[in-house]
Amino acid sequence: MTKRFAAVLAGACLIVAGVTAAQAQTYPEANKRSSVIVAATAGSGADITGRLVTSGLEAAFPGNSYQVVNLPGAGLQVGMQALADAPKDGYTFGLTSLPTVITLSMDAARGAQFNRDSFIPVANFAYDPGAIAVQVDSPYQTLADFIAAAKEKPEELTVGVTGPGGREHLDVIGIEQAAGVKFTPVFHNDSGLALNDLMGGNITAVQGSVGDFTAQVANGRIRVLAVFNDKRSTFMPDVATAEESGFKIYSGTSRGFALPAGAPEAAATALSDAIGKMAADPEMIKRVQDQGLELKYMDHTQYGAYWDSEIVRLTALTAALPK
């Protein structure tokens, strides 16, 4: 049933008529219609990023059109499966959110029929570094304070995260492993509701991303303890990185693009170059920042290397999930 279903979904991506496109010398050929699979509902953050890039691609390749195809469902799994099964002519690609694509395929119970080898990384575009926040009148001023308290009271500090086994949950496990402490995760379906519980004093902290927190920091309701990136965030330059606090933890949500495996290499490089040019455009940088994201371009090979390194990092963390 799953197989047949996957086949039906694959059909969803059959936009491009050309049969000989795979042998094309130049990419993209003139006046082609490409479809861009976005595994999220229209209007979500990922969708807005996807549409930003497709409008940029339409400007970069005049005459070509790029149709966003929203295929939400089961986290990203429905859309990623459709991307893995999509036509390999280079005219169907998709928005990939790391590390969620990886965590989904690692969870055997979910039965995902794709893995790293199903995709050709194209480029990374936007990045939202992970961060941890507490209520503004919380006694914890720094990540070190927070961890010291957790050492004293094992499992007593509660940290709001989105779903079990997701990126934020794994971040918390990462802190636990690095610092030798234990927290109690509290699962929320979205970061807004987790923040409501934080501000109402129900939970000790929320693990999320910088973009989730900027509004409430401005309102003076919460304090971000640390950003899990190699440099401070442009949105909150006063907040120390986890590295500065002595914990070498780097995590965040990225939005990039990938082709299904088997697509022509030329497509990956052409798209990667086009996205690279877009990423240098000041107007585009501003648009991405308006969404609360950082623009973080990685080309074809850099994105692939990042993908591989995330797999290594996450394999260690998922082993610690309660079975």
Partner: peptide, 20 residues
């Protein structure tokens, strides 16, 4: 769908769209 406590799929009959 996936249960809210451990993320375990329940009664999904192997159908991916039901995971959510």
């Amino acid at each position: 769908g996936s249960d809210p406590t451990m993320g375990m799929p329940r009664f999904t009959f192997g159908l991916t769209p039901l995971l959510g």
